[in-house]
Every structure is written in structure tokens, then in C-alpha cells.
């Protein structure tokens, strides 16, 4: 028995423990859709108080990574912990911004109604949100510069404004850790600037933010850390070290056009 224990090598590169100080630790996670694996053996520990970009080609499993962390899709194996505890126990610490296209914006609701839904997680069954919660929601709307649109029906908002409403809803959740699924997709320049300002504000407050991001050009400017993902974690860590041409090549494989884009981004990043 003794020999068998000692003979097993310990893999030190892996996050073997769910550390109580780590905002998000993913351990050995595999996710499959219809038996086809989408994520393989993911190991990652997110450092606290940083803006983290999750980068990878289409179909790399970026959204799935978030959804698996939040128990929205079943994991084939592995576990995810938030400050050392499973998601079930830490929901109140986690805010979520789903993709804007994931819902029907013709739903009868005002911007304030939507943001107030961010407070539902703090409410027990059958209790409607009171004034206190609506005030918190209103503050969240102001934070994204949408206070004037509180009463506006959501289908009358522009794409960028809808995205800001979604961000405000996550802010209303009043969380420590935020997951954002492509918040920059299809938004106008003003919204992009507003989101960047908001990310930095969150960081200044010590929040940890994980953002699925598509635009390689802006990665070095927006994110402290990156996770390069293509079914597996190709590389992760501080952007300055990890966001290299070589790593991007590994992540994006043979996709020529993307490689060109990536190379440009790296070149520009190097000048900074």
C-alpha cells in the first residue's frame, strides 16, 4: 500500500485544492453536449480582483465554460468552487450577464423591471421586490448611464442600451464575482466605453470579473489576465505574459485570418 501511494506522481501544475481565497477555481472539468465533448479537463484558478478575458475561437466552449461554472449545463466530470464552496452555496456572490441574444426583447418589461430581476436572488419565494430593491436597481441603472431610460420598454432600446441594462441587472445582484458573456458583442462605441469604465470600476472595488471576449485587438487594453481557451485551457495568466503570438497560434490553430488579426494585436500590444 505504502509503495503504491509514493509511486503516484503528484501533478503540481494542477489546481488540486479549491482554495477558500480563490474567487473561482475550476478543477478537472469536462462538459459534453450530445456526447461530444465541448470542454476537456479544464483546470483554472481565477486570481482575485482582476479583469479576466476568456478568449478563443468560435466553438471553443467559452460560453459553455461560464454556463458550466454556474450549473446551467451539466458537467460530465470535475468541480467548480467559489471561494472554496460549490456554486449552490455561493450564488449570492456571483453576478451573471448572459448573451444579449439569448432572450426575447419584446417581453413586456421596462428597463427598470429587468434590472430589478437582479434582486430576485435576494428575495424568498412569493415575495415581490419592495422599494428598497427598486432603489438598488435604479442605482445600478444610473451606474451604466441609463437612469433616464428606466421606464422605457426594453424593445425600444438600442442594442448597446439593452446590453447596459443587462450589465445593470448584474450590478443589482451586488456580487463579488461577475461572469459576462460577450458584453461587447454588437454594441456602439459609447456603450463599449461605458462597459470598459464599468469593468475598471468593478476592479477598483476588488471584484473579480470574467469576460468572454471576441475582439483580440482590445484584449491587452481591457484585461489584466487572459484564459486562452479551445476546448482545453491552452494558456492562462497575466495578459502581458500569456497573450503572445505563439499562444494565440496554439489557441486558434490553422485559422489564417484570425492569426493575422492576432499577430496584429500582439504587435500593437507590444508597442504599449
Amino acid at each position: 500500500m505504502e509503495s503504491s501511494i509514493s509511486s503516484k506522481p503528484i501533478d503540481k501544475t494542477r489546481v488540486t485544492d479549491h482554495d477558500a481565497d480563490t474567487p473561482v477555481s475550476i478543477h478537472d472539468m469536462t462538459v459534453a453536449y450530445h456526447r461530444k465533448p465541448v470542454l476537456w479537463d479544464i483546470d483554472y484558478a481565477a486570481p482575485e480582483g482582476r479583469l479576466i478575458g476568456i478568449i478563443g475561437p468560435n466553438g471553443a466552449g467559452k460560453s459553455t465554460l461560464i454556463k458550466a461554472c454556474l450549473d446551467l449545463v451539466p458537467k460530465a466530470s470535475g468541480s467548480v468552487c467559489f471561494y472554496g464552496q460549490p456554486y449552490k452555496k455561493q450564488r449570492h456572490l456571483v453576478g451573471y450577464v448572459p448573451q444579449r441574444e439569448s432572450i426575447d426583447w419584446d417581453f413586456p418589461a421596462s428597463a427598470l423591471d429587468v434590472v430589478t430581476m437582479g434582486r430576485y436572488g435576494h428575495l424568498p419565494w412569493c415575495v415581490p421586490p419592495g422599494r428598497k430593491h427598486k432603489e438598488i436597481a435604479m442605482r445600478a441603472l444610473s451606474q451604466v448611464g441609463m437612469a433616464d431610460y428606466a421606464k422605457r420598454q426594453i424593445n425600444k432600446l438600442s442594442g448597446g442600451q439593452q446590453q447596459r441594462v443587462f450589465l445593470a441587472r448584474a450590478l443589482a445582484q451586488d456580487a463579488q464575482i461577475y461572469f459576462m458573456d460577450e458584453p461587447f458583442a454588437g454594441v456602439d462605441a459609447a456603450t463599449e466605453a461605458a462597459i470598459v469604465a464599468l469593468l475598471n470600476e468593478l476592479k477598483a472595488k476588488g471584484k473579480t470579473v470574467l469576460v468572454v471576449h471576441h475582439d483580440l485587438q482590445t484584449v491587452p487594453a481591457y484585461f489584466d489576465d487572459v484564459v486562452l481557451l479551445n476546448m482545453r485551457v491552452v494558456a492562462c495568466g497575466p495578459t502581458s505574459k500569456i497573450f503572445t503570438e505563439e499562444n494565440l497560434q496554439k489557441t486558434y490553430g490553422g485559422r489564417l485570418t484570425l492569426l493575422v488579426e492576432a499577430a496584429e494585436a500582439v504587435a500593437r500590444g507590444g508597442q504599449r
Binding site: R91, V94, P98, S102, I103, F107, A109, M117, Y120, R169
Partner: peptide, 13 residues
């Protein structure tokens, strides 16, 4: 909340 955004509802528990 489930009619509007099922995923967000599930994420909230």
C-alpha cells in the same frame, strides 16, 4: 423571471 430569462433565473438558483 423564467418567462423573461430562464438562464438568469437558473443562475440565481
Amino acid at each position: 423571471i423564467i418567462c423573461f430569462d430562464q438562464q438568469f433565473a437558473a443562475a440565481q438558483g
